[in-house]
């Protein structure tokens, strides 16, 4: 199949970027990133600068890929990362627009590569349970209701790719932050620090320059792990509670 690609090229965050057009011959069995590999192989053979994009596991779990395909982070397929998106989802002759994740808190490093360290700092602000190695009691000492464990797992599935903030017209990181707050807060182990955690993670999220949530729901639609905005509601509730009771 023949595709027209409009790819965003940008040298670094200070420079201005623009679209570059290429035609690529792809097979429908290729993943989207393999199609990008084909493009890059050709650019290299022409001694041109290949398109920089982030990728690693190519199994949909590491969260490295950060492309927006036709306006949608990770492309058109529901619950799928870019690396798992296959070209059979496109038609011969399609024009595909590829852009980097866009949010102020994700500065562009080059082409389609963005800096998502803001997410790491949000986790560092409280996205953990304070237990040193060796302090744990027996794994079965605290039974956890199966449904609760599953709920926590659903939230814990977040791969930290940033598609939520990239999809959000407000550049908000609420889905990411609330998924972590939910994962840990739902479990008895994490309940102890919950109040403090909610407050500090929300504060860090604001400090990083992410926008506020206005419940548009684009994050949930584009999340490759289909994490629910239910987590956002939970975090809102817990944040209010925390603000009321904290001294």
């Amino acid at each position: 199949m023949k595709l027209n690609l409009k790819v965003w090229r940008q040298k670094n965050n200070d420079s201005k970027g623009s679209f570059e057009t290429h035609t690529v011959n792809a097979s429908e069995h290729m993943s989207f990133l393999e199609m990008m590999d084909v493009l890059n192989e050709r650019l290299i053979s022409e001694k041109k600068d290949p398109v920089a994009f982030e990728h690693d596991c190519r199994e949909g779990i590491c969260g490295a890929c950060s492309m927006v395909i036709n306006g949608r982070p990770h492309g058109p397929q529901q619950g799928t990362t870019t690396c798992q998106l296959h070209m059979r989802k496109f038609k011969d002759g399609d024009t595909i627009v590829v852009e980097p994740f866009r949010a102020k808190a994700f500065p562009i490093l080059k082409d389609l590569v963005v800096d998502r360290s803001a997410f790491d700092r949000i986790i560092q602000s409280g996205g953990y349970i304070s237990v040193n190695t060796g302090q744990a009691t027996d794994g079965n000492s605290v039974p956890i209701e199966k449904d609760l464990a599953l709920k926590a797992f659903d939230a814990a599935q977040c791969i930290g790719c940033g598609a939520c903030a990239a999809a959000c017209p407000n550049g908000s990181a609420m889905l990411f932050t609330s998924a972590k707050v939910s994962h840990l807060g739902l479990l008895p182990q994490g309940e102890v620090e919950h109040t403090k955690r909610v407050q500090s993670m929300v504060a860090q999220m604001d400090e990083e320059g992410f926008g506020f949530c206005s419940n548009i729901g684009a994050c949930e639609v584009e999340c490759p792990k289909e994490i629910s905005t239910e987590n956002i509601a939970r975090m809102n509730r817990d944040y209010f509670k925390a603000s009321l009771v904290s001294e």
Partner: peptide, 17 residues
Amino acid sequence: NKNAKGSKYAVSPNNKT
């Protein structure tokens, strides 16, 4: 929120919002 977003996408997403 406009500041937090920075620039917009060239293609407006055709998603379920």
